[in-house]
């Protein structure tokens, strides 16, 4: 017994050394390259968040692995030198170890929850879908969102850009309410600009995942799901649907671009005027669109009257009754 080395200290030292090494290696070598990069504010802050979690997780992983490895190496029954195990009360519980374990895990867990909440709040929702009435939003977003519903909405560099993402089986289209509400098949964004994505769907649930932008929000029919980010770098990005939406879910992707502010303004104004005839045929800009009240989805009552959807702007509401 007396000759028995202090196993726990050994394990602790090995773990500590390996952990410090792994954390340092990770932080400086892998950390800066962790997806999705640093194209936007949310991308870089969530990358940082991921790295913090990783730095905490690596010692946990290494600790358990070192323990398992140490166990296998030292206490296999095949080793002749392995001492006989001892049963009895001492092997059954150890108040100190148990308390320490519970305290440490609780502290780590509570810290992580607090840290996550903090990051979520200062990140204005961290690029995730925040539902129709975001509680955490960047400065100027509320005004821009409110103004977007009026026909006089406009955008100037430095203001929040409102973009509507309309998902349907199996493509995304994008509307720019601050540019007359034109519709585009490609998502073009200005650099150094806070963007408010208003994600909705016309049919089933999709998920708008602008990978490099670190924006992900489910597209629900008749719900507006808002997510924010601020672009930081020029470049191309991928948009994929990340919620199973049927047959061609796998093919539901496109590519967007972050352009300079002036290029973006040029593109937007040019497209706005080029598309004006088409835009006039579109339903008025609204947060959500529901099928024509006269169509398949109309309310159906025994007395034969069709219930109007009244307060909500409806997709195709201007069409003549079929």
């Amino acid at each position: 017994m007396n000759k028995d080395p202090n196993h726990l200290r050994r394990i602790f030292v090995i773990t500590a050394v390996l952990s410090v090494a792994a954390d340092l290696l990770y932080w400086f070598l892998a950390g800066p390259h962790i997806p999705p990069g640093r194209m936007t504010s949310t991308a870089s802050s969530n990358q940082w968040d991921f790295n913090i979690l990783m730095v905490i997780a690596l010692p946990v992983l290494i600790g358990v692995w070192v323990f398992l490895g140490y166990t296998i190496a030292n206490w296999s029954s095949k080793r002749a030198s392995a001492p006989e195990p001892k049963g009895g009360a001492a092997a059954r519980s150890n108040m100190k170890a148990q308390t320490l374990w519970i305290v440490i895990t609780s502290v780590v867990v509570l810290f992580l929850a607090g840290f996550g909440t903090f990051e979520l709040i200062i990140g204005d929702g961290s690029g995730g879908g925040e539902g129709p009435n975001p509680v955490w939003e960047p400065a100027g977003a509320a005004q821009a969102e409110t103004a977007a519903l009026t026909s006089s909405a406009s955008w100037a560099p430095g203001k929040v850009l409102v973009v509507q993402v309309i998902a349907q089986q199996w493509k995304f289209t994008y509307r720019y309410p601050q540019f007359g509400g034109f519709e585009s098949a490609q998502l073009i964004l200005p650099n150094d600009t806070t963007v408010a994505f208003n994600v909705t769907s016309l049919d089933v649930i999709h998920s708008f995942w602008a990978y490099q932008l670190e924006v992900k929000a489910d597209a629900n029919p008749q719900e507006n799901n808002v997510a924010f980010t601020t672009t930081k770098q020029l470049g191309q990005f991928t948009v994929r649907c990340s919620e199973l939406c049927g047959l061609w879910h796998g093919a539901m992707y496109d590519f967007g671009k972050v352009e300079t502010r002036s290029n973006f303004t040029n593109w937007a104004t040019t497209t706005e005027s080029a598309n004006s005839a088409n835009t006039a045929d579109l339903p008025a800009f609204a947060w959500t669109y529901v099928p024509d009240a006269n169509g398949a989805a109309g309310g159906y009552y025994p007395d034969g009257t069709v219930t109007p959807y009244s307060t909500v702007e409806t997709y195709g509401a201007k069409q003549a009754a079929s």
């Binding site: 529901v290 309310g299 009552y301 219930t307 959807y309 009244s310 307060t311």
Partner: peptide, 8 residues
Amino acid sequence: NNGLLWRP
């Protein structure tokens, strides 16, 4: 009360 159709 989606679409005001909870209980018209």
